[in-house]
Design a protein around this nucleic acid. Structure first.
Length: 167
DNA sequence: CCCTGATTCGC
DNA sequence: GCGAATCAGG
């Protein structure tokens, strides 16, 4: 590709219209952004009539909706969320911690300081979760707003409101 | 990371 | 004259 009079004229036109060097290069085809810049300098038209046009993606302002309705991370992930209902505890532990296998429900039952403390130990509802069918239902209970958190992850041993049976 | 123009310098 | 490479930024 050479700078024929026609291509040079096109370059000149696009550049003076305010297209960026890479945009001009794309329009012309067969030349790089650097080539365009070099040519522009040699032509001595580095001062443009029109300021560089911003690309549409850059110029686009965020929509009002997405800004207003997206909750901030701070709100979505409270450090302390003691607004959970008491969780029914009708199952007896089937396992101590040493008896837990990869597929055992890890719902804690009882108080760690007591002899009868243990884990549910029943088969997990899914390979990904940590709990059996029943405990995966009851493990997360949200009273209002915020994100459902895993009760045990909130240090259920100390959090009486979350693990009443542990006290 | 995406992008911008400016400059240098071997070709 | 050309433009890749590099620089200095946004």
């Amino acid at each position: 590709m050479d700078w024929s009079e026609e291509r040079t004229a096109t370059l000149k036109k696009l550049w003076l219209e305010g297209l960026s060097a890479s945009q001009v290069a794309r329009q012309l085809g067969g030349v790089s952004r650097s080539a365009v810049i070099g040519k522009v300098h040699r032509l001595g038209i580095t001062v443009r009539e029109t300021p560089v046009r911003q690309r549409a993606t850059t110029a686009r302002a965020p929509s009002r909706i997405s800004v207003r309705q997206r909750p901030s991370r701070d709100v979505a992930t409270p450090r302390v969320a003691p607004r959970y209902e008491r969780i029914e505890e009708d199952l007896l532990p089937t396992s101590g911690i040493l008896g837990l296998g990869a597929h055992s429900c890890r719902w804690p039952i009882g108080h760690p300081e007591n002899d009868d403390f243990g884990f549910c130990g029943r088969p997990k509802a899914s390979a990904r979760g940590s709990y059996c069918e029943q405990h995966s239902q009851g493990a997360f209970r949200r009273l209002s707003g915020g994100q459902a958190l895993e009760a045990w992850a909130l240090k259920g041993v100390k959090e009486k409101r979350i693990q009443p049976r542990l006290v």
